[in-house]
Nucleic acid binder design. Sequence first.
DNA 1: GTGATTGCAAATCTTTTGCACTAAA
DNA 2: TTTAGTGCAAAAGATTTGCAATCAC
Lengths: 139, 139
Amino acid sequence: MQARRPYRDLIDRLKTVKLRPTRQRLALAKLLFSGCNRHVTAEQLHNEALSAGVSVSLATVYNSLHQFTQAGLLREVVVEPSRSYFDTNVCDHHHFYFEDSGELCDIPPETMGLPQLPEAPEGTRIARVDMTVRLKRSQ
Amino acid sequence: MQARRPYRDLIDRLKTVKLRPTRQRLALAKLLFSGCNRHVTAEQLHNEALSAGVSVSLATVYNSLHQFTQAGLLREVVVEPSRSYFDTNVCDHHHFYFEDSGELCDIPPETMGLPQLPEAPEGTRIARVDMTVRLKRSQ
DNA sequence: GTGATTGCAAATCTTTTGCACTAAA
DNA sequence: TTTAGTGCAAAAGATTTGCAATCAC
């Protein structure tokens, strides 16, 4: 049933967060949100868009990624100095980071207990907890 | 007792990790290791050195920070895209990150239980676990 | 139409690099 | 003296910005 109006859902999704469904945003949203959860860098997404025949500038990719993040559609993950990943899974969860390949991957929540969190210091509240389990090839 | 040979300990510390105790490395080591544990960026440390009347180039600060890190004297902490912090506390521990000020601070280990870790995937081993509790001003 | 969005190229910021010079052993 | 370390200035990445052209409403 979706076949006849492939963009309707994405358009609604963008409108809901008050972003105009432009050609570029729609194409990027399609790449990001039509399949499984993903972890992408701006550069990767830009290349994917170009490969898919969508002409978007890298600046617009950055803008869109930040707008999507601000709107709660994406989450920014910092694991490396000087390269940001954007995660389409915005639920509470943590990451494996493969140091050898630079690949990022969700940790299935059921494989780890909830960490016992410390209290937030006076005058602050916890905005988010990020945990990264850094992996290396064994031996 | 240390007063008469203020640099002896630092010199030994550098020699132990096979780094020549040059004027610059000693000055940086002094700033980093003479007081309490610290979290600094390259830029911060460079400014401190200049303020202390030690002439060091920023390139040398970067080199030294990485050499110290490789030698296990420091630990690199990634909490922000495109800015690295270096932590003089190399024991297992986690961080509070004050998003408003960019300040980084150790979480006292006794205030949080050890998280139950997931198994490392086939063929990998856990190199390190980084947890960052991101804080915002409350209300 | 009009205000939001885009693309481009230039600017910015952090970090790294190449290489001649200097200093530690 | 010999090799490691330093400083500088230039290069490299990733990201951002300014602004005229374009597009969604």
